[in-house]
Amino acid sequence: MIRVHKIHPAGSGPDDPPADRITLDREDRHRRRAVMTGENGLSFLLDEADAVFLHHGDRLELEDGRIVEVLAEPEDLVEIAADNAAHLVRIAWHLGNRHLPTQLMGETVRIRRDHVIEGMVARLGGRLTPVTAPFDPEGGAYGHGRTQGHSHDHGPGHSHGHTHSGAHHHHDTGHD
Rank of each mutant, 00 (worst) to 15 (best):
I22T: 12
R112N: 07
V78R: 05
P17D: 06
D50P: 00
H154D: 01
T102L: 07
E73R: 15
A10K: 06
P156Y: 03
E138Y: 08
K6C: 02
F53R: 14
L45W: 04
G65V: 01
A86C: 08
G126F: 01
P134Y: 05
H5D: 15
I2Y: 05
S165C: 15
V78Q: 04
L24G: 05
P156W: 04
E107S: 13
L24D: 06
D76L: 04
P101Y: 03
H162K: 14
T23A: 08
S43G: 11
R66S: 08
S151M: 13
H144G: 13
L62M: 04
R32L: 08
H150K: 13
H169F: 15
K6D: 08
G140P: 13
L45K: 00
R3Q: 04
H175F: 11
I91K: 10
H56T: 01
R90I: 03
L104A: 14
D114F: 01
G143M: 11
E39K: 11
S159D: 15
G125N: 12
G143A: 09
P9L: 03
G38S: 02
D76S: 12
G106W: 07
R127H: 12
S43V: 04
Q103P: 00
G57Q: 07
H152Q: 13
A82E: 06
F53M: 11
G38W: 04
R29V: 06
L124I: 01
I67G: 07
G139E: 15
A86S: 14
T163V: 15
H5L: 12
R90K: 14
P9S: 05
R112F: 00
E107M: 08
V121P: 04
G106Q: 06
